[in-house]
Simulated scan of single mutants.
Amino acid sequence: MTAVTCTNAPAVKHSFSPLTWLATAIQTRRERVALSQLDDHRLKDLGLTRAEADREAGRPIWDVPAHW
Rank of each mutant, 00 (worst) to 15 (best):
G58K: 04
R42Y: 03
G58W: 05
P10M: 06
K13V: 09
S36D: 08
G47R: 03
A66K: 15
A3Y: 01
L35P: 07
W62P: 01
A57S: 10
T28I: 06
V12C: 04
L46E: 06
T7V: 11
R29N: 08
L19Q: 15
A11T: 04
A34Y: 01
V4E: 03
R30H: 13
T2L: 13
S36Q: 05
A51Y: 06
P18Y: 04
A3V: 06
P65F: 00
H67K: 05
A57Y: 00
T49V: 10
E56A: 12
D39L: 08
L22G: 10
L38P: 01
W62R: 02
K13L: 12
A11N: 00
W21T: 13
D63N: 15
A3H: 02
D54I: 10
L35A: 11
R29E: 13
D45S: 15
T20K: 14
E31S: 13
W21S: 13
I26Q: 12
T28H: 09
V12W: 02
L43R: 01
R59W: 00
P10V: 14
P10H: 08
A9W: 03
G58S: 09
L19R: 13
H41F: 04
G47I: 09
E52G: 02
A25W: 05
I61T: 11
T5V: 04
A9T: 10
